[in-house]
Write a protein that binds this DNA or RNA. Structure first.
Length: 273
DNA sequence: AGAAGAACCTGGTAGC
DNA sequence: TGCTACCAGGTTCTTC
């Protein structure tokens, strides 16, 4: 679920609700694997209880909750992680891993597959944190442009789809939007990176920005598990992802399904060259 | 260095 | 109905 557009939806929905709110109480599942990268997890409640949320940001697929002046609660939802705003008395089940209690509601992190990650960074640890150090530029920024992508793809033999999933190249792009971007740019996901011409890369950059903006506008894409913090489904509908055997929305040919870099990949063999 | 594949997890479902 | 095998939107490690 959680690609850039879904995490951005989390950010927008949460920002107005939790900014300025004091964290009254924290509950964490002690044995939960989502804290496996955070050795000091037992101290998490002590670190943040009684403190105020100052900002809600995002970098790539990481949600960043700024607490007081010098702490950031970092949440990576992984494949199935979700954040929910709920009544304080709402029951937690065995897939809940963390709850932040505010005055009138609580924020719950739920993840049944436990590929998600949660940890806390102090400001001075932030810049040297390895998870952020090598991420590429935000795809919706000016720095993510045809020059950047050409530089990253033009020497590579790997399929362009696999390269788009590399967070050092196109951070925030995941399996769905990589397929969608290739479809809109009319580029086969199987083509080698070094095989793309400048004009192909220009179309691809435009397509990546377009699919992400549209998905954010619609509150993300729900294939299976994704819900926004209020429990609503994402309203974005993929043009090619998940449409195996159905007619291409451009030319009517059947959509193919294959594997690229071990990931399920959908494309139209007629439109995408 | 870079490409490919497996591993990490659980739950849902297709097929028998 | 019940069992097994396989599949899933992310990341990271190992092997070649």
């Amino acid at each position: 679920m959680a690609e850039l557009a879904e995490v951005e939806t989390f950010r927008k929905e949460l920002r107005n609700k939790i900014c300025g709110q004091k964290i009254r109480k924290v509950w964490i599942r002690g044995s939960s694997l989502v804290f496996r990268d955070f050795p000091k997890r037992k101290q998490l409640p002590n670190m943040v209880e009684g403190k105020v949320i100052m900002a809600v940001g995002r970098r790539c697929k990481y949600l960043l909750i700024g607490i007081d002046r010098n702490l950031t609660l970092v949440i990576h939802p992984g494949m199935t992680g979700n954040l929910f705003l709920r009544e304080r008395i709402a029951k937690r089940d065995r897939h809940c891993h963390m709850e932040l209690y505010f005055r009138n509601f609580k924020l719950t992190f739920r993840d049944h597959r436990m590929f998600g990650r949660i940890f806390v960074l102090r400001n001075k640890e932030f810049t040297c944190f390895p998870g952020f150090a090598f991420l590429g530029p935000e795809p919706l920024s000016k720095e993510f442009n045809e020059n950047w992508l050409y530089e990253k793809l033009s020497t590579r033999r790997a399929p362009v789809k696999a390269l788009l999933l590399d967070q050092k190249i196109a951070c925030g792009v995941g399996n769905i939007y990589a397929d969608e971007a290739c479809f809109i740019a009319r580029i086969s996901p199987l083509r080698q990176g070094r095989d793309l011409k400048h004009q192909d890369i220009e179309r691809l950059v435009r397509a990546i920005k377009y699919v992400l903006k549209e998905a954010i506008k619609r509150g993300g894409t729900t294939i299976r598990d994704y819900r926004n913090p209020n429990g609503k489904l994402g309203a974005n509908r993929p043009l090619v992802y998940g449409r195996f055997g159905k007619g291409c929305l451009t030319c009517g040919e059947k959509i193919y399904r294959t594997k690229v870099g071990n990931r399920t990949t959908f494309y139209c063999p007629a439109c995408q060259q």
